[in-house]
């Protein structure tokens, strides 16, 4: 388990599908550097990447903060987007509000939030229409 604490922070740019994933990629490299196990790194990578894609597609961009301590990796994703009217509906596999354009890019099949929930140990969404969305996840060691 890691001996050092680590905090990373990224600004995610909304609508830039080409750059989407760069923060996740940088996070993965940083976690590898401090010696986390492959299993933990992969789970964090999936959660963060799906979240980052959501921020780009739906949230109009936002902020991603990753904190590592002796117990876990915590990921906090905040955006100022339109918010989610029905969070429990959004968590259903297959439910999506993504456009056809996004679907043609390989996303928007309604698997993002379910994937994030599946691979995290703690998962919480705070969202209201018009007030943006915050997703907090943690992956325990």
């Amino acid at each position: 388990m890691p001996m050092e604490k680590l905090t990373l922070s990224f600004d995610i740019i909304g609508g830039n599908f080409i750059a989407a994933g760069e923060a996740s990629s940088a996070t993965k490299a940083a976690l590898r550097k401090i010696g986390l196990s492959n299993d933990i790194i992969r789970r964090v990578s999936i959660c963060m990447y799906e979240g980052e894609i959501n921020q780009v597609i739906h949230g109009g961009g936002g902020k991603a903060v990753i904190e590592v301590d002796e117990r876990r990796v915590a990921i906090t994703l905040t955006d100022g987007g339109p918010g989610i009217p029905d969070v429990s509906k959004a968590l259903e596999e297959g439910f999506s509000t993504a456009t056809n354009e996004i679907r043609e890019q390989g996303f928007g099949a309604g698997m993002g939030l379910p994937n994030m929930k599946r691979y995290s140990d703690e998962f919480e969404i705070i969202s209201k229409p018009g007030e943006g969305t915050t997703v907090v996840m943690s992956i325990r060691f």
Partner: peptide, 30 residues
């Protein structure tokens, strides 16, 4: 469908796809 790839972890080493954007690379990397 990249989210499908992300949904099923089984130490896959090769990704076959007809999709051709940066997110294919990101998904494979993750």
């Amino acid at each position: 469908l990249m989210s499908d790839v992300l949904a099923f972890v089984k130490d896959q080493s090769v990704l076959l796809t007809g999709l051709m954007n940066q997110q294919v690379v990101r998904t494979a990397e993750m």
